[in-house]
Amino acid sequence: MSRIAATFARLRAANHQGLIPFITAGDPSIEVTVPLMHALVEAGANMVELGVPFSDPMADGPVIQRASERALHAGTNLGHVLEMVREFRQRNADTPVILMGYLNPFEIAGYDAFAKAAADAGVDGVLTVDLPPEEAGEFLAAVRSNHLDLIFLLAPTSDEARIRRICDTASGFVYYVSLKGVTGASNLDVVSVAEKVKEIKRFTQLPVGVGFGISDGKTAAEIATVSDAVVVGSVLVKAIESMLDRPQEIPKTLAAVVADMRQAMDASAETPAAG
């Protein structure tokens, strides 16, 4: 069983939902990322989503754009990102790591070479924001043959035919983009998320994670009652941005934010009225 499948199986058995923090690899420096990943896991993260910085992150809001710029400024490239995962794996054999990025850095590395190196480093899944299934053929084959999951997005604008098609192609879990907008937006509507997740679940046994616009424990808890996992990014990256003058405090501070969310999610899971 893959690390991702095993993680969701454990969560299901415990009647808990997954908490998946996103950070941009190399933000604000290459050294900070691995200790930060460990701190997030110790605070209750079930999976880590590691952003691969790109010069033109079209689907991201200003917070994650700036994180990408800082990481690139620090000299982070795909090779560094894979090294970080390898180093993380020396102390953590169980927590899945997903790379989230845009296609071009993977494309220039070569799909097969990238997928092989990623699997070798201990990556579990890849999410390419600008690669819909229509264009994914070759990349999907490369990723699959190296036993990695390719995580696909679904959105409020995805109709039934697309949901069906993407669920048929996806593995690992399905990532539902909770709103029309970019990462870090603030127009999240829990009721419509609940409806859409229910619709998605008609077509797949895969867990459904929800992300974009989840910025506090309360919202995370609400979303957790209607999904299998919650992805949080901008709120963490914003905290990093506020600590650029004291990077040594970043792991501790972000761990506190994640611990808060964990607690809120677990508390609401134990409240019978919820959901």
């Binding site: 696909f152 959105a155 995805s158 109709d159 983009v177």
Partner: peptide, 12 residues
């Protein structure tokens, strides 16, 4: 060419 965009834009 092709269509390399995030899922939210595929419908529009």
């Amino acid at each position: 060419g092709g269509c390399f965009v995030a899922e939210t834009l595929m419908g529009p």
